[in-house]
Amino acid sequence: MSVPNFGVGTFRLQGETVINSVKNALELGYRAVDTAQIYDNEAEVGQAVLESGVDRKALFITTKIWVDKLSKEKLIPSLKESLEKLKTEYVDLTLIHWPGEGHDVREYMQELLKAKQLGLTKEIGVSNFNIALLKEAGEVVGMDNIATNQIELSPYLQNRELVDFMQQQNIKVTSYMTLAYGKVLQDEVIKNIALQRNSTAAQVALAWAMQKGFAVIPSSTKRANLASNLEAKMLRLTDDEMAKIDGLECNGREIDPKGLAPIWD
């Protein structure tokens, strides 16, 4: 199963808020849900999925292994804990959340591949990896086993060198922070395109990313915004509109945690 182009994110959503968000998303037709161990909401996501009544086989659930579990002793046990919280026998995709410092890429990628072989996860991948780390990971598990690299990517941070490498290797680009904490929603270029297309700025930004072949995982606590975001799948931008958004690149990185992030390309 390939990584879906559109899903709902759950970063920073907790308790009843994340339950309601995921249930609303599933009711609206979303079928991919993204969570992580460090989000501390896997149990609530699992509850929402269970209560939604949607057939598990129709869903694509992603979680991510936190940096304190990147060892032979801890990775698989931590994933099993995640499965218990998510109330599922497997996830569709498991990612290494951040490379961090001082971790053995060979060790944790071998364990991640083992998790796939054990049936705990259908696919494996990484998040926040640069080109050098992707090459290291690929040497361990094979590039064909890396389903995606989930990276911060928006009109303001287009990561072109990394994206080009990933596409050459047939690794799916998953964009998080596609709206740059909402900053792109105030951008005049994007707002003008949205006005001309009778769309929202969020729909334009999400459509731009998907039209480039990227997967997106926007989150929202509001049902109306979840519904509106989903309509981005139906929007097709012109070459001129795409070029205008391409021109917004300004290395506008929002997330760069010391001790977790690699040296970016």
Results as ranks from 00 to 15, higher is better:
V3W: 00
F6A: 05
G9I: 03
G15E: 15
I19C: 12
I19F: 13
N20L: 09
N20F: 05
N24K: 02
N24R: 01
L26P: 00
V33A: 02
V33Y: 00
A36N: 04
Q37H: 09
Q37C: 08
D40T: 12
A43T: 09
E44Y: 03
V45K: 00
G46M: 03
Q47H: 09
A48Y: 00
A48S: 05
V49C: 10
V49Y: 01
V54T: 04
D55S: 10
A58P: 04
I61A: 00
T63H: 05
K64D: 01
K64G: 03
L70A: 15
L70R: 06
S71Q: 08
S71C: 10
S71G: 13
E73D: 14
E73Y: 10
L75I: 13
L75E: 03
L75M: 09
E81H: 08
E81S: 12
S82D: 08
K87W: 08
T88D: 10
T88P: 06
T88A: 15
V91I: 14
D92M: 06
R106E: 13
M109Q: 08
L112A: 13
L118V: 11
G119R: 01
K122D: 07
G125N: 08
G125T: 11
V126I: 14
N128V: 10
F129R: 05
L134F: 09
G138D: 09
D144T: 15
N145G: 11
N145Y: 14
E152R: 03
S154H: 05
L157I: 12
Q158K: 10
Q158E: 07
L162N: 01
F165T: 01
Q169M: 12
S175A: 15
S175C: 13
S175Q: 05
T178E: 13
T178Y: 05
L179G: 00
L179V: 02
Y181Q: 14
G182H: 08
K183L: 13
L185H: 01
L185D: 01
I190V: 15
K191I: 06
K191S: 14
N192I: 04
L195A: 15
Q196M: 10
N198F: 11
S199K: 10
T200S: 13
A202F: 04
W208E: 00
W208T: 00
K212W: 06
K212A: 04
P218D: 02
S219R: 06
A224G: 07
L226Y: 03
N229Q: 14
E231N: 13
A232T: 14
A232L: 12
L235F: 10
L237F: 09
L237E: 06
T238P: 06
D240N: 09
K244E: 10
K244Y: 11
I245T: 04
G247D: 10
G252I: 08
G252K: 03
G252D: 09
E254F: 14
K258H: 07
L260R: 08
A261C: 07
P262I: 11
I263V: 13
W264C: 04
W264M: 07
